[in-house]
C-alpha cells in the first residue's frame, strides 16, 4: 500500500472553510440502463438504496452517487474494489453493464465549515442556496474552470470530486475562495 499516493495526499487548508484532500478512495463507475431488476439487484448487492436523480445514498464507508440517467458512482474502500468488481460480474452475468475501476481517476476533497455555501458560490455557477442544495444532493457543475461534482454530506460539510490531473488547481482555487477576509455573508452563516 505504500506505493499508493492519492492526489495532493493529505493537503489541507484552513480558512473560511477547511479544505482537505482525502486519501485514496475506491470508486467504481457503473453504467447500465435503469430497470427495476437492476435497482433491486444492485441494492441487494450493496446494501444501499438506489439513489434518486441528483442524490446520493450512503452507509458507513460506502456510497452510491447518481451521476446521470445511466451512470452511478460507487464509493467504497480503495482495497475493496477488485472484489467488488468480481461480485458485480457475478451479480450481473451477461448484462449490458459497464463496471470499471476509476479509483485513481478522481480526486476527492472534504470541505467543512459554516460558510461552505458562500465559498462554493465563488466558484460554482450552480445554485448553492439551502433551498436548492440539501444534504444528500449531488451537483455536477463547474469549479471555476474545471468540471466537478459536489456531494453535500451535511449542513456544513461537502465532498467535492474532480479529475485527478486538476486536483492541484481545484485545491488552489478552493483555498483562494476560502481565504479569510473574503466573507460574503450571502447564504447566511
Amino acid at each position: 500500500m505504500s506505493d499508493v499516493m492519492a492526489p495532493l495526499d493529505g493537503a489541507r487548508f484552513d480558512g473560511l472553510v477547511t479544505v482537505e484532500a482525502l486519501p485514496a478512495q475506491g470508486q467504481i463507475t457503473l453504467r447500465c440502463e435503469v430497470s427495476d431488476d437492476y435497482r433491486a439487484k444492485l441494492s441487494g448487492l450493496l446494501g444501499l438504496a438506489f439513489p434518486e436523480p441528483r442524490k446520493a445514498v450512503s452507509d458507513g464507508d460506502r456510497a452510491l452517487l447518481w451521476m446521470s440517467p445511466d451512470e452511478l458512482l460507487l464509493l467504497l474502500p480503495y482495497d475493496e474494489v477488485p472484489e467488488m468488481l468480481a461480485r458485480l460480474e457475478e451479480t450481473f452475468p451477461n448484462w449490458i453493464l459497464l463496471a470499471v475501476d476509476v479509483s485513481d481517476a478522481r480526486a476527492h476533497f472534504r470541505l467543512s465549515g459554516a460558510p461552505l455555501r458562500d465559498v462554493l458560490s465563488k466558484l460554482v455557477p450552480a445554485d448553492m442556496a439551502p433551498g436548492a442544495f440539501v444534504p444528500g444532493d449531488v451537483k455536477r457543475s463547474k469549479l471555476a474552470q474545471v468540471a466537478a461534482g459536489i456531494w453535500l454530506r451535511g449542513p456544513e460539510e461537502a465532498q467535492l470530486f474532480c479529475f485527478r490531473s486538476v486536483a492541484d488547481y481545484a485545491f488552489r482555487v478552493l483555498a483562494t475562495a476560502a481565504e479569510p477576509g473574503g466573507e460574503v455573508g450571502f447564504h447566511g452563516t
Binding site: 471555476a144 474552470q145 490531473s165 486538476v166 488547481y169 483562494t176
Partner: peptide, 12 residues
Amino acid sequence: EARGEIFQPLRR
C-alpha cells in the same frame, strides 16, 4: 480568481 498559478487549470 483566475490569475497567476490559477489563471487556467494546469493538468498534472
